[in-house]
């Protein structure tokens, strides 16, 4: 059994944000926080990068539109050319509607799967669930996890620092 890190439970979001700020100032970088609801500004404090999901969604929309437009173009120009009322085979005004629908579909799919990928879901195992203070029965607190892989991590020192920051419990997490 190797050590994954230590997890500290705090009673309220203010204590958690204060702990994150202090630990960041001490040089810790490989940390993660858990809370039952969104805590304002916590992601920024942890140094998480701004979401790139909007670009993924834009990309999905463009891919969807281009793919479907190309599909229609292939079917009317190459696969099965059909003269409808003397109009040109490449009747782009009519194609735009379908391409637009496909853009929306592509954007929605990109948003859904991009969100899953960005959150690394589905994830079947995470060491944090080995901590007893994080279990369903005892959960509902505000947690700060410091990974053992952090260069500043010294087991005893880190645990002491977290306790002095007002943690209710500090627990080692097995990998």
């Amino acid at each position: 059994m190797s050590l994954y890190g230590v997890i500290a439970a705090f009673a309220d979001p203010e204590a958690l944000t204060e702990a994150v700020r202090t630990m960041r100032a001490r040089g810790y970088r490989r940390m993660d926080a858990f809370s039952p609801f969104h805590v304002h500004g916590l992601a920024d404090m942890l140094g998480m990068r701004k979401t790139r999901l909007p670009w993924t969604i834009l990309g999905g929309a463009i891919v969807g539109a281009v793919f479907v437009y190309g599909l229609i173009l292939y079917s009317v120009e190459i696969d099965f050319p059909l003269n409808v009322g003397g109009r040109p085979l490449h009747s782009w005004p009519a194609f735009l509607v379908i391409a637009f629908e496909a853009a929306i579909l592509g954007a929605a799919l990109a948003a859904f799967f991009g969100m899953l990928a960005a959150n690394r879901l589905p994830e079947y195992y995470h060491p944090v669930f080995n901590a007893t203070s994080f279990t369903y029965a005892r959960g509902g607190k505000f947690y700060l996890l410091v990974e053992a892989a952090d260069p500043k991590f010294r087991k005893g020192v880190t645990k002491g620092q977290l306790t002095r920051l007002g943690a209710e419990t500090v627990e080692e997490v097995e990998a």
Binding site: G85, R87, P93, A94, L96, V97
Partner: peptide, 12 residues
């Protein structure tokens, strides 16, 4: 705007 044009273009 696009719909008016599409219908007119389609009707020809």
């Amino acid at each position: 705007s696009f719909m008016q044009w599409l219908v007119t273009w389609g009707g020809d």
